[in-house]
Amino acid sequence: MTTAAAMLSTPVYRPVLPPLPAQHRLLVVQHLALPETAYWQQQLGEEGVPVSLISLNGDMEQLFGSLQQRLSQARVGTRLYICGDESFLWKVHQQARQCGLLNGEIELIRTADSRELYCVHCSTLQTIEPAPLVHCRQCGLQLMVREHFSQRLGAYMGVCNDPFAPYGEAPATVASTSLEEQAS
């Protein structure tokens, strides 16, 4: 089975360097301790543009509070850089949009390959490694990882892989066998 094709909603992460012009840069990091933090702080501060740092201290609400407070004072010419895993990027992205930043003012720096997957059958969000097929951690159904990405959830959509074994019925292999038997 090959990986599903990219869709309109599949995020594309463009290179952040060289940084676009700005009067002020705001760097939001998921892990303060990672070497990326110091690297990006240094890269973004070249040419003397001030860089402010906000880091996640375990609590997203607190992070959103500081972001909102900073952006309420901000002027046009502020660029936001979000550094973390994909799910973190889009949660902060959504918050920043609500504070008035536009897509063109937000840059995403993805630091991990892991993906967030949303099981459309039992609504469970789960972190997965890159793979076309996984079993839902909650309901056990085999899911095909679609490239359709929800910015709101920061997650890809996982849908039942076997059309002959819909959600709530017997496991995939058994169900399709019994259907074939009925047909014959």
Partner: peptide, 30 residues
């Protein structure tokens, strides 16, 4: 302030001056 949109109407030289300055200050095209 952050929610500002700028609108320019006038001679080409004014429009290009404003657009170039805005770009250099980090204003996105939107």
């Amino acid at each position: 302030p952050l929610g500002t949109h700028v609108y320019i109407c006038g001679p080409d030289s004014l429009i290009s001056d404003v657009c170039q300055t805005a770009d250099a200050l980090g204003w996105p095209a939107e």
